[in-house]
Design a protein around this nucleic acid. Structure first.
Lengths: 334, 334
DNA sequence: CTGAAAGCGCTAACAA
DNA sequence: TTGTTAGCGCTTTCAG
């Protein structure tokens, strides 16, 4: 039974109790870097138990110069897609003894900067970063020398590591899928138009249409936010000008909003209007109808991201990962 | 323009540059605890800029004995309800200069323990904790002396602070709502039966039925997991024995699963069968039909949780927060 | 108002 | 194999 600790028990106490030196206690706890005689080791272990000693990770971090901590900076953890990324990342990081500091920017650019600064002060050994907007604070991070992987589409600025699917291609593919269903009028609901991934998804959509000689109609591009509400609003906006045959929502939240609005308008998916989306999560398999969506390999991304941070610095700046078209019923497939 | 730093620049460098002592640099950076002459202050500020100095939070934490860090231990961050809690918590914590260490246990009891230990070593100043199962590691936490708020229903063990809605009452109320719709046969889909919140939700359901003289039928209690898939399976299980008029899914994920299965079976909600659930998130407002659900005041919970940690130790062990019935269409309301 | 110096708890180089 | 000790970068007391 551990002693009651009035004063925090430190390694000195353990050493005294075990009748040995602090160094030996360290060696036992860390299994190195020096070997310890079995008998001594047992005495130390006993002393640790008796004193109820717990190592202080902060002191260890200071002395060893390693915090075993990564920072995760994202716009909003309650976005299911980002939550699934966070889930995978923390799992992967923990495999390597690392823990994640959660930096949820609440969709605020100001907050995002504060968070990055804060995490940097805390000596995170790497940052996994998806920015709220098109101008991530990479200079801030780089000037600190902290390893960083962006999960965003990013200006091909020098030295930034980024992990991403080829969004233009993915958008092309999913639009193409709609075209193969025979749809000719295909609308797109976008996020903020200045964002690079918005532009990529948009241009993938355009490419597919152009390739199929379908022509691009301005009226079917509805740019706004990557939110449920915006998806919802977009439908009502479309209602005024007449609906396309199919809609490409550029993220899953928007698609949820679409489903709701379409149901209110008594429009059936996919019979009356087809719907597909980007970056679906498992929830897309549970909507009615199930959503056809571009699915990112979240586990692979997490694995790769941690890998990049661990092998820092590395050359391969931009790293592309495969996406997958997850076919649901919402596009017309049965 | 900051110097290129071969060696990390520390406070000593700044002091030298400013022609003052390290203590003064501290006073300037922390705005205390001693006052500094304006002129000196300016010199220090200039030196900081010139050297590109960044304080080391780890060293600060060690010296000051305060990490400004809380740990969040939950079964799975990709559960939307927990994600919304995490979102609110991080926001609230950050207001007070604190950051969250994310401990996603991946629904594993073993992992959960490892995480708690890990976070404890890291000297978190508080833990916000929802356990994977009915036996949280409170002894572990308490023996470390770390403040802790459970967001679970918890055995009234001594000294554990917990923040929770009255789940029994909430379950009663929502079941009652179904009864008021005129439903007599009301099924319930539960999580693992040994968990306390499962039992609470179950007994709230029973209370409402008994009170209305409706009698309790064993066959309409389907216990399993708090997952989408279990909700899905439960419907097919019910199909074999005939459906009740209404179903109470005891979390939102299960309800999503129900919606999918019911759609597959061409059963309309609420016309053919009504559905309500527990702990809905904003997503419940976007399903078709929208879900009637017990909604927890996530922001208030976060605020209160941080408050409890900050005012540690505090007497009020178990603290109840209000829930809210969010009415959707799934119960039959229009 | 400012400087010197003693820690915070641990690591690891150096000695023994 | 083990002990001693000088840091890690910062805070803060105690003297000036």
């Amino acid at each position: 039974m551990p002693d009651v600790n009035y004063r925090k028990v430190t390694r000195v106490d353990v050493a005294r109790e075990a009748g040995t030196s602090v160094a030996v206690v360290s060696y036992v706890i860390n299994n190195g870097p020096r070997p310890v005689a079995e008998a001594t080791k047992q005495k130390v272990l006993a002393a640790i138990k008796k004193t109820g000693y717990r190592p202080n990770g902060i002191a260890k971090a200071l002395a060893s110069g390693s915090t075993q901590t990564y920072g995760l900076v994202i716009p909003d953890i309650s976005n299911p897609f980002l939550a699934s990324i966070a889930h995978a990342l923390q799992r992967e990081a923990f495999k390597h003894g690392h823990v994640l500091l959660l930096g949820d920017a609440g969709d605020s650019r100001v907050r995002e900067k504060e968070l990055i600064n804060n995490l940097l002060l805390r000596q995170v050994e790497g940052l996994i970063y998806t920015s709220v907007d098109r101008h991530p604070y990479i200079d801030l991070i780089q000037s600190s020398g902290t390893p960083c992987v962006m999960l965003d589409r990013v200006d091909p600025t020098e030295g930034v590591s980024a992990l991403q699917v080829n969004e233009k291609l993915a958008a092309y593919k999913i639009t193409r899928h709609l075209i193969e269903h025979g749809f000719k009028d295909i609308g797109i609901i976008c996020g903020p138009i200045e964002m690079l991934n918005t532009q990529d998804r948009l241009s993938g959509w355009e490419n597919a249409l152009v390739e199929a000689n379908l022509g691009i109609q301005k009226k079917w591009v509805i740019a706004g936010q990557y939110t449920r509400d915006w998806g919802y609003q977009a439908i009502y906006q479309m209602q005024k000008i007449g609906f396309p045959e199919a809609i490409f929502a550029t993220n899953e939240l928007q698609a949820f909003g679409c489903l709701k609005a379409l149901a209110e308008l008594k429009l059936r998916v996919p019979e009356d209007i087809a719907l597909v989306c980007f970056n679906g999560t498992v929830q897309s398999e549970y909507t009615v109808p199930t959503l056809t969506t571009v699915r990112q390999p979240v586990d692979k991304i997490a694995e790769k991201a941690i890998q990049i941070l661990q092998n820092w610095p590395n050359k391969e700046a931009i790293c592309e990962v495969d996406f997958e078209l997850q076919i649901g019923h919402s596009c017309g497939c049965w």
